[in-house]
Amino acid sequence: MVAVLSMDEDKATIAIIHQYGVEEVATIESGRTGKLYESKPNEKEYYGNIFSKIKNMDIPLVIVGPGFAKEHFASFIKEKGVKKYILEGTGHAGMVGVHEAIKRGIVERVAGELRVSREIKLVEELLQKIAKNDLVAYGKNEVKKAIDMGAVKEILITHEMVREEEQMLEKAEQMGAKVHVISMFHEGGKKLASLGGIAAFLRYAIH
């Protein structure tokens, strides 16, 4: 999932991009009535209202929109301690801007970067456990043995091996194991391949 904040000086729309579609979460109005106005709207109040809607979201945030409102808001949340977000320009704010970000591949790119980061983190965790002789198994024979014993909690497998090991993966999933398919197009996948292309985090020791 990725959160998209599509905003300008007048309004901000927050949407969450799920695998199954786009969910509009909230739209916040700035209170500004037009381009020619005497009193400047309370920018901090507007930004504060937006921030209150996104501060508890534990997913990547993409901020899009025309003009400089998104940059000003980014500075505002940086002062609040939020440092992880991506800024991208779009021609429109609101849901139109959200869909523009999707069509231009901005959301897909962020989701892809997140997926790669997660995969690399999983492989690094595996390597740390191997170094500590912790609850892991790697290589086809060891993982198969662990599955047969019902000891597997999670499986890491390179995408190249998935097809040839479908039956083994299905059996693992039936026993409650979670399967992570690791791409070979980054360092994590190459490290996993050097261990036989498949490994598992275990519920308990099998030796």
Rank of each mutant, 00 (worst) to 15 (best):
V82T: 06
V136S: 03
M95L: 15
L135P: 03
R104F: 11
E124P: 00
I120K: 13
K103Q: 14
G94Q: 07
M95E: 13
I106A: 05
A101L: 01
H99R: 14
K132G: 05
G105I: 09
R115I: 09
I77C: 00
R109Y: 13
G139M: 10
R104M: 13
I77D: 04
I130W: 02
Q128H: 07
L114C: 10
L122D: 04
K140I: 14
F76A: 09
I102D: 04
L87T: 03
E119C: 02
E124N: 11
K83D: 10
K121A: 13
V110L: 09
K121I: 04
D134V: 06
I106M: 15
K132I: 08
K103T: 15
A137P: 00
V96L: 14
K83L: 08
I120N: 08
R115S: 07
R104I: 11
I130C: 05
L135C: 10
E125N: 15
A93V: 06
E79K: 15
V116A: 07
R109E: 11
K78V: 02
R104G: 02
I77E: 03
R109P: 04
L126A: 02
T90N: 04
K83C: 06
H92E: 10
G139L: 07
E125V: 08
K129A: 15
E88I: 13
K140D: 12
L87K: 05
G81W: 06
Q128M: 12
N133G: 10
G97P: 05
I86Q: 09
K80Y: 01
K103A: 15
K132L: 09
G105E: 08
R115E: 13
E108F: 10
V107F: 00
L126R: 02
K84F: 07
V82M: 14
G89W: 01
E108C: 05
I102G: 05
V136R: 02
K132P: 06
I130Q: 03
R115M: 11
I86T: 14
V110S: 09
I130P: 04
L127I: 14
Y138W: 14
G105M: 08
E113W: 04
E100W: 01
E119N: 03
H99C: 07
E100D: 10
A131K: 13
G91L: 12
S117N: 11
R118L: 09
H92A: 11
V107M: 06
E125P: 03
Y138G: 03
E88W: 05
I102T: 04
I102P: 09
L87G: 01
K80Q: 13
M95Y: 08
K140W: 10
A101T: 09
E119W: 01
R115N: 06
L135H: 01
V82H: 00
G97A: 07
V96M: 12
K129I: 01
V98Y: 00
L114R: 14
L122H: 00
G105H: 07
E113Q: 13
E119H: 00
E100H: 05
K129L: 10
G89S: 12
S117Y: 11
G112K: 14
L122S: 06
S117G: 08
N133Q: 12
A111K: 15
E124W: 02
G105P: 08
V136I: 12
V82F: 02
K132D: 11
T90F: 03
